[in-house]
């Protein structure tokens, strides 16, 4: 192929790439710049550099508007979600993928049904159950909802991955008289770490970004996760634009860091999940 010759087409290509990049950077930049400005500057000079960097907007958002509490809640909820999913789904996937018995195929099909269920379809029955057992403002229930909704995808990815692992290690362990639990814990689980980290990243983002469940089932200020807390902030102090923009920046900070740290993993898992479906 020709080497780096400037052709009209390559000019067009870079023009397109830069134009598109501007489409993505401008709104993000606007938010970031506005997060250190006061209202007057946001409106008079939306894309200029601020006269003074008002970092106290972040303090206002973090302390006065309770973003610190929402942030911590979300960390807690998301971590609990991914730990439970990693544990329960790897256990289930271990049995489904490593042992031959008639029911295993049907168990898998049963799990896969859930992939097609939109959250909105089950909201009313879930609200009914939550009302009946007085489970509103219960973070454990919120976590279990996230777990339930991510089980199909997680079990599918883990079972597919475990099928690919050589069985000789396990067979040796069986002959040595190791229990099933030991085989799972000491042999299968360590080999499945790459797949577990993939699903955990997706499950973390899923729990962090969800707003629908907490919107309906959490109304205690102290328990709200960040996506809902952000809306709350907007509802209460919708005209404090600077601190609000700071709150948006705080909300997207963790997903951004996760993406930057695990870029390959996020993109690879996405493509694999999509192609597998």
């Amino acid at each position: 192929m020709k080497k780096n010759k400037i052709t009209p087409l390559s000019v067009l290509k870079y023009l397109f790439l830069i134009l598109m990049a501007a489409m993505f950077i401008m709104p993000l930049l606007f938010t970031l710049l506005s997060s250190v400005k006061d209202n007057r500057e946001i409106f008079s000079n939306p894309f200029g550099l601020p006269e003074v960097f008002r970092f106290d907007n972040y303090v206002t958002a973090w302390q006065d508007a309770n973003m610190s509490q929402y942030f911590l809640n979300s960390i807690l909820i998301s971590l609990a979600t991914i730990v439970l999913l990693a544990l329960f789904c790897s256990m289930a996937a271990f049995i489904i993928s490593r042992f031959e018995f008639k029911a295993s195929k049907w168990v898998m099909v049963f799990f896969l049904i859930g992939m097609m269920v939109p959250m909105h379809t089950i909201l009313v029955p879930v609200a009914y159950i939550i009302g009946m057992f007085n489970l509103k403002n219960n973070l454990v229930v919120l976590v279990l909802l996230y777990v339930a909704f991510n089980i199909p995808f997680s079990v599918m990815v883990l079972a597919n991955f475990m099928k690919g692992i050589s069985k000789s290690l396990e067979e040796a362990a069986i002959i040595d008289g190791a229990s099933y639990f030991r085989i799972y814990w000491n042999v299968a689980l360590p080999l499945t770490v790459p797949a577990i980290s993939t699903i955990s990243i997706f499950n973390f983002l899923g729990a962090w970004n969800n707003v629908l469940f907490p919107l309906l089932f959490i109304n205690d200020q102290k328990l709200k996760p960040i996506s809902l807390g952000l809306l709350n902030f907007n509802g209460e102090r919708g005209s404090q634009y600077g601190p609000l923009m700071a709150a948006i920046a705080i909300t997207v900070f963790i997903p951004l860091v996760i993406y930057l740290l695990f870029q390959e993993k996020v993109e690879g898992g996405l493509a694999a999940g999509a192609v597998k479906e």
């Binding site: 789904c89 256990m91 168990v107 799990f111 859930g114 279990l144 339930a148 909704f149 089980i151």
Partner: peptide, 15 residues
């Protein structure tokens, strides 16, 4: 081994 995932999934999604 399958039960924990199965129960959570059944209670919060299938039912």
């Amino acid at each position: 081994f399958v039960l924990p995932a199965l129960i959570i999934y059944t209670v919060f999604q299938i039912i």
